[in-house]
């Protein structure tokens, strides 16, 4: 598997997209730090990047990459290598390169300018979201043979999690506004990785306002070690579940 990861990794580097992505993140982060002296305001702007751009790039890049390496996969399948190894090799290569790009692009300026706990949370949620959306993109790629269709499905995932789900959530909150919803919303928020990442950031940036509604409930929950374990494991499920399903489909798939 390491050799497959290595080949795929070189292949990804050759397309230069990853380098461009890294440069984009690096330059925009540095520019934000240069323009604004208040580091929490920079984190705020970066948060929009993390919640919107990172999932989008991850999902689109992964899908396109998967279809571009279709011939490579077919070639590898002709060799005595079993399917999970090829599939996971592809997955790790893509996930690692995107994570690397994100860490370098956002992490380095943060270390340079110093961003503390807020920056760390942002980095953590960015990496988790990258992995989640790479997984989702792999799932959408194995669901269909048509590249355009797969990109469509992948974009739909992105669209659903960043917009449609919040619309539904808002409708629920609106309809049940007379009831205590703290615990229910906690569950609902966990069903969307982007929302979960956003709440983790809200706890850093808007804690005063959040205290107004939930009292100390959210702060106590996410601030405790139980909360950290909870959010990490929920995000991990969001990473693992699509990959496992995709792997099952890929194993039986007629390529």
């Amino acid at each position: 598997m390491p050799r497959i990861i290595k080949y795929v990794f070189y292949d990804i580097l050759r397309t230069r997209f990853i380098l461009l992505y890294t440069m984009f993140l690096l330059l925009s982060t540095i520019a934000m730090f240069q323009l604004d002296t208040d580091s929490s305001k920079v984190i705020l702007s970066l948060m929009n990047v993390v919640l919107m751009v990172v999932p989008l790039v991850s999902v689109v890049f992964t899908t396109i990459h998967f279809y571009n390496s279709y011939e490579f996969i077919e070639l590898m399948l002709a060799q005595p290598v079993n399917r999970p190894v090829i599939f996971l090799g592809e997955y790790f290569a893509v996930a690692l390169s995107l994570c690397f790009a994100f860490t370098a692009g956002v992490g380095i300026p943060m270390v340079m300018y110093g961003a503390g706990m807020q920056g760390f949370t942002l980095l953590y949620s960015g990496l988790m979201l990258t992995l989640v959306f790479v997984s989702l993109a792999f799932l959408s790629s194995v669901l269909t043979r048509d590249k355009a269709k797969a990109i469509g499905v992948a974009l739909l995932f992105w669209f659903y999690f960043s917009l449609i789900y919040d619309g539904l959530l808002m409708w629920i909150i609106y309809s049940f506004s007379d009831y205590p919803l703290e615990k229910a919303t906690l569950v609902l928020v966990s069903l969307n990785p982007i929302d979960l990442a956003r709440i983790l950031m809200l706890l850093q940036l808007d804690i005063s306002a959040l205290m107004g509604y939930t009292g100390a409930f959210y702060k106590d929950f996410f601030g405790s070690s139980l909360g950290v374990i909870f959010s990490t494991s929920v995000l991990t499920i969001w990473i693992l579940l699509p990959v496992v399903i995709a792997l099952q489909i890929f194993k039986r798939k007629d390529l």
């Binding site: 948060m47 929009n48 919640l51 919107m52 960043s162 917009l163 919040d166 619309g167 959530l169 808002m170 909150i173 609106y174 506004s177 919803l181 919303t185 928020v189 982007i194 929302d195 956003r198 709440i199 950031m201 809200l202 940036l205 808007d206 306002a209 959040l210 107004g212 509604y213």
Partner: peptide, 19 residues
């Protein structure tokens, strides 16, 4: 909106709210 429905603060800073 949050003034009327305090729970809605949970959606603050989401893309939907931005729009």
């Amino acid at each position: 909106i949050v003034e009327r429905i305090p729970t809605a603060v949970l959606l603050w800073r989401s893309f939907l709210v931005f729009l």
